[in-house]
Amino acid sequence: MTRTAPPVAEETRTRRRVGRYHAGPGIGTYVVLVIALLLSIFPFYWMFVVASNGTDAINRIPPEIMPGPNFLDNVSKVFERVAMDRAMLNSAIVATVVASFQTFLAALAGFAFAKLRFRGRNVLFVFVVATMMVPLQLGVVPLFMITKELGLVNNLLAVILPGLVGAFGVFWMRQHIAGAVPDEVIQAARVDGASSFRTFRSVVFPMVRPAAAILWLLTFLGAWNDFFWPLIVLGKPESFTAQVALRQIQNTAYVTDFGVDMAGTVIVTLPLLILALVVGRQLIKGIMEGAVKG
């Protein structure tokens, strides 16, 4: 299903029409939504409450439910236990590289699948989509062995390389390119003598840039939050990603300090929260549009 009208226009249109049939939402609607909102936010609040107190404030009945004064203290303990700055940098590198490659390669492949004609195109596309069903765990043992053969254990490349492409991205970009770029535009470029890559670069990609941006964000989030594979393959502190470092904090020492654990959680989550505040609107729009297209 494609949709060419900008969503904003559509919304105003529907607003006007439905308005005739019933009045605005009642108080019940808001109550429901506010409850949902509180449930969404509460774990973040709790994270901060624990991170700014300490284990003893939490391990008692009744537990502390207000933020305390120890946040910075706990944060500095996080850095004592694990090189969190290095881990965050590693995650930023991994997530940026993975997101950028995946987006670019997905756009390229999506373009080919949507607009170029070549033998086996449809079969290959179905294959790509089918790979989305393959669980990560399926190949993890040999993947580890391959990584070992390549000498990449404890190397960020071990996490980056398998992430350079993604079936979801190809699918996503193909759907958007098929929907947003009319065939006539491609043909016109071709008649002008543009090569297919040039067509891609100067005609197609600019038209789907917003969709590509959303894909970049989603991939970035996914790579930032990836845990299963990095936990297995990244064993040395200088190669830890933020998630592995977080697990490390939890494990470090026999001594459990919830305050420090949670301070670590806050540190790892905060960049994403900020990101969400900055680009959340577009991200939501992108996710919703993608849903309609899929």
């Binding site: 949902a36 774990p43 973040f44 994270m47 989550t269 929260l273 969400a276 505040l277 959340g280 939501i284």
Partner: peptide, 20 residues
């Protein structure tokens, strides 16, 4: 936005918070 934020949080972070 409230619908979105839980999803951008890492599973590990969610796990730590909910375990407590």
């Amino acid at each position: 936005m409230a619908m979105l934020v839980p999803n951008i949080t890492s599973v590990l972070a969610v796990g730590i918070v909910f375990s407590s």
